[in-house]
């Protein structure tokens, strides 16, 4: 563990609390992509299923339980509790275009061709692109509630902080994980446009609006 990874994980936790808080205070899931949230459930289930056979630490174990259960809870909130506030006509990104290619890539580019490795690799690739339906939805509406942008900022910062973590691990442990690193850089790259608008508008007290 190092400070980058710890802060990254804390940003990830924060993003989930912000999202749940947003839905409770506004009593709605407006502006939230159900598809992205469903992809996160798939990401966490496929990556963290190893908690049944690989022991790492209490920290790792409890975080895995938390991410699986909170992502399922969020899916419940969007799909049942606040369903009337969900507009499927705005959430139209085709998830097949993400899940299919990620699965094929996981079959081709992995460390070992076995069940648990392919699940892990698939989850890494899918996590990198799972934000697409959410970004696509914002692109369509051209705006987002401020609290939704705080959620996305925390979620983007989480993986961005993993990059210095990998650099740190390379120098201190000599370890390199090309699959995680490449996917993590792609994942962070997808947020760059968003970060630009977030920093230049939202953090200056303005509303998040995309240029027409």
């Amino acid at each position: 563990m190092n400070v980058f990874r710890l802060l990254g994980d804390l940003a990830h936790l924060a993003s989930i609390f912000i999202l749940v808080h947003k839905m409770h205070i506004t009593r709605s899931c407006r502006g939230i992509s159900f598809k992205t949230q469903a992809l996160y459930v798939l990401v966490f289930l496929t990556r963290y299923l190893d908690l049944f056979w690989a022991w790492i630490s209490w920290y790792n174990f409890l975080m895995k339980i938390f991410f699986i259960s909170s992502s399922c809870y969020i899916l419940y909130l969007v799909h049942y509790r606040f369903r009337p506030t969900y507009d499927p006509s705005l959430d139209t990104f085709k998830v097949e275009y993400l899940v299919g290619p990620c699965f094929v890539l996981a079959l081709i580019f992995n460390y070992h061709f076995d069940f648990s490795e392919i699940l892990w690799t698939f989850s890494i690739y899918l996590e990198a692109v799972a934000i697409f339906p959410q970004l696509f939805m914002m692109q369509r509406t051209g705006e987002a509630e401020t609290i939704t942008t705080h959620y996305l900022a925390a979620l983007g910062v989480y993986r961005a902080l993993y990059i210095p973590n990998w650099i740190y691990r390379y120098y201190t442990e000599g370890t390199v994980d090309p699959i995680a690193i490449v996917a993590g850089i792609v994942q962070t790259g997808l947020y760059l446009d968003f970060f630009y608008v977030y920093v230049t508008k939202v953090l200056q007290g303005q509303k998040f609006e995309l240029p027409a």
Binding site: H112, V176, A180, I181
Partner: peptide
């Protein structure tokens, strides 16, 4: 072992 480092990450 053969596992890459990120397997112990979240």
């Amino acid at each position: 072992e053969g596992k890459q480092s990120a397997h112990d990450e979240l």
